[in-house]
Amino acid sequence: MKIKAAVISVVLGLLFWLGLNTSLENEVLIIGAAVVVLTAVFAVSNPVLKDLKLGPKALAAMIAWLFVFLVELIKSNIDVMFRVISPRVRINPAIVEVKTALKSPAGRMALANSITLTPGTLTVDLVDDKLFIHWIDASSTDVEEATKAIAAKFEKYLEVFLG
């Protein structure tokens, strides 16, 4: 378990370091490797790395989630922009309750963050498996219907790689 977390953080850290430096000189690589390994030692207890599942299925889900997320981001941004420029600001706000099926803290965190990043929905609080979400155009205040409209599309993929 710890080895997996260490490997993930070393790979991510090295990619980050190379992106910042954009060079492959020996000095740069040696300093980078030393710092990255040191950071990984501190990062192995990170719960996000522990909950992350690896494998082809998880990777496919991760890519699908990124894709769904980007499409959602663009769609809802355009939607919110039209709300802003319409003559009488078109809003129907409410704080609704959503129940998530995800068990791991990292999965819930990722779900809350995906919901917050799409304009129109904003996670106000997260208590156990309940998310309280400020929704700019609440079509329903019912728990199940709100879950279907806001969380289901991200949950489907997050379930596979973060549980």
């Binding site: 663009i74 922009m81 802003v84 809003i91 706000p93 304009p119 700019i136």
Partner: peptide, 14 residues
């Protein structure tokens, strides 16, 4: 405030 957060901080992401 809540609706301002919706447009002000998050529409800027895209």
């Amino acid at each position: 405030l809540y609706n301002r957060i919706q447009t002000g901080t998050k529409a800027t992401t895209l």
